[in-house]
Design a protein around this nucleic acid. Sequence first.
DNA 1: TATTACAACTTGTATAGTCATGTTGTCAAA
DNA 2: TTTGACAACATGACTATACAAGTTGTAATA
Lengths: 245, 245
Amino acid sequence: MARNKPTKNKQNSIAQDIALKIRHEQYRPGTFLPSEHHLCDLYGSSRETIRKALEQLTELGLIQKMRGKGSLVLDIQRFSFPVSGITSFQELNKTLGMHATTEVLQKKNDMIPDTLAKGRVDSGRTALHIERLRKIDQVPIVLDEDYLLNPPISEVSDAAAASSLYAYFEKELGLDISYATKEITVEKVSDRTASLLALDENKLAVVIRSMTYLADTTPFQLTASYHKPDRFKFIDFARRRKISF
Amino acid sequence: MARNKPTKNKQNSIAQDIALKIRHEQYRPGTFLPSEHHLCDLYGSSRETIRKALEQLTELGLIQKMRGKGSLVLDIQRFSFPVSGITSFQELNKTLGMHATTEVLQKKNDMIPDTLAKGRVDSGRTALHIERLRKIDQVPIVLDEDYLLNPPISEVSDAAAASSLYAYFEKELGLDISYATKEITVEKVSDRTASLLALDENKLAVVIRSMTYLADTTPFQLTASYHKPDRFKFIDFARRRKISF
DNA sequence: TATTACAACTTGTATAGTCATGTTGTCAAA
DNA sequence: TTTGACAACATGACTATACAAGTTGTAATA
């Protein structure tokens, strides 16, 4: 069973290590990392391995490579909620040090709504429907409607639902979460959703619908997240894609 | 001067070529690409070069690699406005085949607002302020407030402002656009903005503030985009990041 | 028949080397 | 002083090779 440790190979370990050193300001923004040759010596690895580690950091927005000069450490004030990179509420809670609570409102089998299925999943199919209200400092912020497909997910404990589904999927079930498609819109929502989030009379909420896939490309999670508009803030780091398609 | 041709090296050419073949359904969703060894023969290159090309396609969400099996072509119905990947309105217009028009409302030097500068740029500084209203089928959709820093941008022709700033920056000025930070919120906007976008009385708009950087890490563009909430739709493809930071 | 073992494929990871090309400081020449 | 050549660095791109490990079909075996 793939335990999916984040650092299982050399290039990941190196990337992780450098990332931590950047986080702890051992490498400071505005300065250059040791050269690739130097890093080879430091980690006792080949240059290609170092370069693959640095590429991960580049993709994350931690460094900017400059030909002939070196790898510049970028200034990362990228807090808040990143859209890119599938990140769970619980992970964000930890990183940001907010005081967040999760209240599980429902957990039962339901039909998958068409708005989430989108033809990519049988809409007649049932799935484990978990409804959770997320609060920060007692204020409702997000309402999550998760539909978990069976297989691969047969049941979820109350504890897992209240803490982190992602941690449960990856660490307990050994699932290899790979990618997701997300869609962000602003919509008028139902009276029930509006009252749960304590919206004003226009009932507008930011809705994020996502479908999350495993490495074998089977979808396993469909989610609709309803965010309070005034407390909604997403931050994204994006690199320019050279390839047009 | 770096002309920044999208296909200047082997791995980019190969990625481009495979991407086009996927687009034209020469490689169909649900099928596997030729194996890496086979692609080596097809393109006359080494396996590492092929792998780097495939990695670009993976990052774009065009394929999913599966160990022991091959590279599966994913089903891409990713239309609409991607948040991730810095993409300009004009590029989207072309790709999506929409009938879009751009109206330049202002083009003059102005002070940079604090909400955009965010301490990363001198807020007292002036920049070339271009205000553009984007319409699709005569309906106003987006209001773009661009602040272009000098250097590296001294002036912009009316034609460039009306068509594509990015094309002008990259092809004419030879700028190497590298990355951007973006922030998405929902806010109550000014009366002027509201009337330009024909918002209803609550005056809520989706605001995307971004700061775009060159490869040498100098910021050159600050933008606030105001979107009509009911016509706002962003689609994102995100891969799960294994590295925690 | 059912199971096992294996061969022949696939991708994943790491190594070592080569050449191209951009950057910077130094030192000599004009 | 200014200019130019050059050495010593840096990253970018590519190649060739090796071995690990997952997948699949086949053939031998119990």
